[in-house]
Computed example of a mutant assay.
Amino acid sequence: MDKTDSTILSILKENSRASASDISKQVSLSVPAVTERIRKLEQTGVIEKYTIRVNPGASGYNLLAFILVKMDYSRNMEAFQDVCLQLPQVLECHHTAGPADFLLKVLFRDMQDIEDFLSCTLKDIKGVTDANTIICLSTLKEEITV
């Protein structure tokens, strides 16, 4: 991957619907050359998928929380991961080293939603022994850069 590929990725991160024609003008390459570079980035797994970015507040989800989850036994971790994959409010689930076994990034509508999730969903998952919730006040930066 070279500087031109990085520039193409930056353009696509800003607008995944950018046409090869628009991109070609910005990187000074022909449309077929840009199309081929994008195809190679897809084939090598650099580009995993094209998606949209939804404004959570505009869709009614105004609270973001990070939850540190401790498990009692490692044999319950796979089941925990399977459950997390099915929970739509869980945006991210990371297996971690440190004070907790997992770090969840979870989106909620309001405080009642958080309480319901913690009391009725998370703590009912087999093996969960502790959950420490951190409420996000604002997000300064949230992106993946290459």
Rank of each mutant, 00 (worst) to 15 (best):
M1I: 11
D2N: 14
K3R: 10
K3M: 11
T4D: 09
T4E: 09
S6H: 04
L9M: 02
L9K: 07
K13F: 01
K13M: 05
E14K: 09
R17P: 11
R17C: 12
S19F: 01
S19W: 04
D22K: 12
D22W: 14
I23F: 01
S24N: 05
V27M: 04
V27Q: 03
L29T: 03
S30H: 08
P32D: 01
A33M: 06
V34H: 00
V34G: 02
V34K: 00
E36H: 12
E42I: 07
T44F: 10
T44A: 13
V46H: 14
V46M: 04
I47A: 10
E48G: 10
K49H: 07
Y50M: 01
T51A: 13
I52R: 14
N55Y: 10
P56N: 04
G60F: 12
L63T: 01
A65Q: 05
A65D: 06
F66K: 10
F66A: 07
F66C: 15
V69Q: 00
R75T: 15
M77A: 12
E78Y: 05
F80E: 04
D82W: 02
V83H: 06
P88T: 08
Q89E: 13
E92P: 08
H94S: 14
H94K: 13
T96Q: 04
D101Q: 05
L104V: 02
K105I: 00
L107Y: 07
D110R: 09
D110W: 10
D110P: 05
Q112S: 14
D113V: 02
E115D: 10
E115H: 12
D116I: 09
C120L: 11
T121F: 03
D124E: 15
D124G: 09
K126A: 06
G127C: 00
G127E: 05
D130K: 06
A131F: 04
A131E: 12
A131N: 13
N132I: 09
T133F: 03
I134L: 12
I135E: 03
C136E: 12
T139D: 01
L140Y: 13
K141A: 15
E142L: 00
I144R: 08
I144L: 07
I144D: 14
I144N: 09
T145W: 11
T145S: 15
T145I: 14
V146D: 11
V146Y: 15
V146R: 14
